[in-house]
Amino acid sequence: MPAKGWIEVSDLYCKGCELCISACPQEVMELDMSRLTPKGYHPAHTFKDGCTGCAICALVCPDAAITVYREVTKAVPAAG
């Protein structure tokens, strides 16, 4: 089962350039046409399930607007 992840897009930084949308391997991102950011752009969001938390959207984002989380499926051994 693929990893489950989710993203948060900051309205302060997102400029709706769509680079994350074309880069998303799962094709689960689009612009949210029902909302506007304070700058007047439609921000990106995930419109359906399927995000794996791969962080490629964050990698191509020119404005560092995306924070990526991933669900932990098994216990991570303590470091050290």
Partner: peptide
Amino acid sequence: ESLVYERPESFTETPTHYCPGCTHGV
């Protein structure tokens, strides 16, 4: 949950003035 990626701390909180999609930001 675990954090995979967040905005680097070496950045200030100022949004950039670059045009949307400009790779200067990258």
